[in-house]
C-alpha cells in the first residue's frame, strides 16, 4: 500500500504550528491519491507531540526518539529519517519549508539518490502524475514541477500554502509507533550551542495596526525619512524588506519576512517593495495591502488590494498631505 509521510517539526517538545499546514496538504493528497497518510516527529522526548498529531485524521504516527536527536543537527536528523524511509518506503515525503528542514532535507534526499521539490505552494494531480507548483524568479513566474525519479519523492511546502485550520481530526487516535534509530558515534559532526535571540527586540511589529514598509525602491538611506513621515501621518510603524535592514538603513528588528517578523496588520503599505517570496510570507496575511512600485510586473501586485504603478517619490508627498488633511 502506497503511503504519504508528513514529517512534522518540533522544538523543545512543542509542535511548530506550520506543521499543521503540511498535514492539511498531506490529508488533501491522501484523499486525491487514495494513499495512506502517516506522520513522523523526530527528536528526544517527542511523545507529547506524537500524541497531539495522532488526534488528526491519519493512519499512524512514528515517534523517532534518540538522545542524539537533541539538539538538532542535520547529520542526526538525516540519518534517523533515512532509516525510517528505508524501512517504511513511503512514496511521498512532505515537510514544511522551514529553516530547519532546508538545512537537512537536501542531504537526506541526496543520501537516498533522490531530489526535493522545495518551497511549493500547491499541487495538482494530472492523471496518475503529481505536479507541484512553486514560485520562481522571486515570484515573477510559477512553475509546475514533476519528479522524474523513483519514490520516495520529497516535497516541502511554503509557509501559508495550506491552511492549518483545514486539518481534519481523526475519528479515533491514530496508533503511535516509537522508533529508536541507530545513530553511530561519529555521525554527528556539528556541535550546536543554545539557540538565542540577538538584542531584545525593541519593536513588536505584530501588534501594529498600520505598517508602512520600504524596499529597494527607496533607493537611498535619506529617503527612508519620507516613508517615516507617511508612517507617522498614518499613526503606524515603519518596517522594511531585508535588503534595507542588511544595508543598515533601518534596524534589523524592523524587518518583515521569513527571517524577520510575520505580521498581519489592518493596513500594509508597501513602498518600492518588489515582493520576493521571503518578504511576502511575512505579510501576506495583512487585511489590506497597498503597493506602490514603478515596476508593473512586480510580484507584490499579485497580492495587493490597491496598487499604484508609479514613482513613489511622486506619490508619497501628496499622500502624506492627504492623510494629514483626512485626519484633520
Amino acid at each position: 500500500m502506497s503511503s504519504i509521510l508528513v514529517v512534522v517539526e518540533q522544538r523543545e517538545g512543542k509542535l511548530n504550528r506550520v506543521s499543521l499546514e503540511t498535514l492539511a496538504a498531506g490529508q488533501a493528497l491522501a484523499a486525491d491519491t487514495g494513499w495512506t497518510l502517516e506522520a513522523a516527529v523526530v527528536g528526544n522526548g517527542v511523545s507529547g507531540v506524537a500524541g497531539e498529531i495522532a488526534g488528526q485524521k491519519l493512519a499512524r504516527v512514528y515517534a523517532i526518539e534518540s538522545a542524539k536527536l537533541e539538539p538538532y543537527t542535520p547529520d542526526a536528523f538525516a540519518a534517523a529519517l533515512k532509516q525510517l524511509l528505508e524501512t517504511k518506503q513511503p512514496k511521498l515525503v512532505l515537510m514544511p519549508h522551514t529553516y530547519q528542514v532546508r538545512d537537512f532535507i537536501p542531504k537526506l534526499a541526496t543520501s537516498l539518490g533522490r531530489t526535493v521539490i522545495s518551497d511549493c505552494i500547491a499541487y495538482k494531480k494530472d492523471g496518475d502524475k503529481l505536479v507541484f507548483t512553486r514560485q520562481m524568479f522571486q515570484g515573477k513566474l510559477a512553475a509546475d514541477v514533476s519528479f522524474t525519479c523513483d519514490a520516495p519523492w520529497f516535497v516541502t511546502f511554503q509557509n501559508g500554502a495550506f491552511r492549518a485550520d483545514k486539518v481534519e481530526a481523526g475519528a479515533s487516535a491514530a496508533a503511535i509507533e516509537t522508533v529508536n534509530p541507530a545513530i553511530a558515534d561519529g555521525v554527528i559532526r556539528n556541535r550546536p550551542q543554545e539557540v538565542f535571540k540577538e538584542a531584545k527586540q525593541a519593536v513588536d511589529l505584530t501588534q501594529a495596526d498600520i505598517i508602512v514598509s520600504v524596499g529597494r525602491g527607496i533607493k537611498e538611506q535619506k529617503n527612508v525619512e519620507l516613508a517615516k513621515q507617511l508612517a507617522e501621518a498614518l499613526g503606524g510603524e515603519i518596517a522594511a524588506s531585508r535588503p534595507i535592514c542588511d544595508a543598515g538603513w533601518l534596524p534589523m528588528d524592523r524587518q518583515i519576512g521569513s527571517s524577520g517578523q510575520t505580521v498581519a496588520p489592518k493596513l500594509y503599505l508597501a513602498l518600492g517593495i518588489s515582493g520576493a517570496i521571503q518578504h511576502i510570507v511575512g505579510m501576506k496575511g495583512s487585511r489590506a495591502i497597498v503597493a506602490i512600485n514603478k515596476d508593473s510586473e512586480a510580484p507584490i501586485f499579485e497580492i495587493a488590494d490597491y496598487a499604484v504603478v508609479g514613482n513613489l517619490f511622486d506619490i508619497v508627498p501628496p499622500l502624506i498631505e492627504e492623510v494629514k488633511k483626512a485626519k484633520g
Partner: peptide, 30 residues
C-alpha cells in the same frame, strides 16, 4: 531527477484595484 513541466505567469488570486492618474489625484483616491 525533477523536471519543469510548465513555466507561467502566476494567476492572480486577488482582485487588485489599480489607482491611476496624476500623483495628487492618486493620493486623494488612495
Amino acid at each position: 531527477l525533477q523536471k519543469i513541466e510548465k513555466l507561467y505567469v502566476p494567476q492572480k488570486t486577488k482582485n487588485t484595484e489599480f489607482l491611476q492618474g496624476p500623483a495628487a489625484e492618486v493620493a486623494k483616491q488612495l
